[in-house]
Amino acid sequence: MSHLLEVDDLKVSFHVSSGEIQALRGVSFHVNSGETLAVVGESGCGKSVTAQAIMGMIPSPQGRVKEGRILFKGQDLTKFNKKQFRSVRGSEIGMVFQDPMTSLNPTMKVGSQIDEVLVKNQKLSKKEAKQKTIELLKLVGISDASSRYSQYPHEFSGGMRQRVVIAIALACNPELIIADEPTTALDVTIQAQILELLKKLQKERNTSIMLITHDLGVVAEVADRVAIMYAGVVVESGRVEEIFENPKHPYTWGLLNSVPKLESSEKERLIPIEGSPPDLFAPPKGCPFAERCPFTMEVCLEHMPGKEVFSENHQARCWLNDPRAPKNEELIAAGRE
């Protein structure tokens, strides 16, 4: 149990009028102290639901955790009540949301929004909190922090707002920060700055980061390890080099093929992954990627592949890695190009 966070076979479903949507269908991964885990996948694959489950913020009563455990510092968060969750949120786990334009309260001074979390979780006085907030604003790179303190969110640009959101997440020095697509809504240059900031803060404070993204470029920049999610399951996970150099799942190959590479001089075309993810309203019984996979075998349609372990960190769920699979090296090689 040396992992800071360990998610084990997590299953979450949403009940809507037309039936049950199985958003997470057995998600397992872990985050070690001081490292950055990137959770990657297309929209709708369950990345954000995973974050919500960890924070205890799955919309009720439609959504609920059906099975599995979320161990944070050895405690199972799925067993937590509201009060226990409140003691974890903000103080031990901080969260950065996707859209900085809407994740700050428009009618509250920016400073007060940071103060609040300090007063709540560290029992600081208003004055001490203000002091610390101004330090935090400086820390996340907001110049003129003391006058910025009493401004409102609409007086901040998107990138600046995201810095404020990061300051809120950081305020109580949490051990884990969950960043849900923190750069998606931002301009490219601002994206780089925000990622740089996250990296810097992590180094200084030895915080663990669970970075949710659909952008492999972001992953390459900041992550130590990667978990690739597809249709409510983790299909491949491993160290960032392992995933980029030696991916074992056709979906990862697809993702890597669809990333533009700046260094390649060739007029390399981006290869999109054909098709769309399965409907989690009625997930397929076999591998969820089978329908879009260029190498589908009959077994893929019938049975969910188990975990194949390649190294201490690297594992994937794909029948192609089964010894019984045809050693169709050429096909695989062709697919990876």
Binding site: A290, E291, F295, T296, E298, H303, R324
Partner: peptide, 24 residues
């Protein structure tokens, strides 16, 4: 799976996939 699945390790006929797809 307990049952023998060895024979299933061959390329699948993907055309058949779309016919029995259950959509929302």
């Amino acid at each position: 799976p307990q049952i023998n699945i060895d024979h299933l390790f061959r390329p699948a006929d993907k055309e058949s996939l779309h016919s029995d797809k259950i959509a929302r």
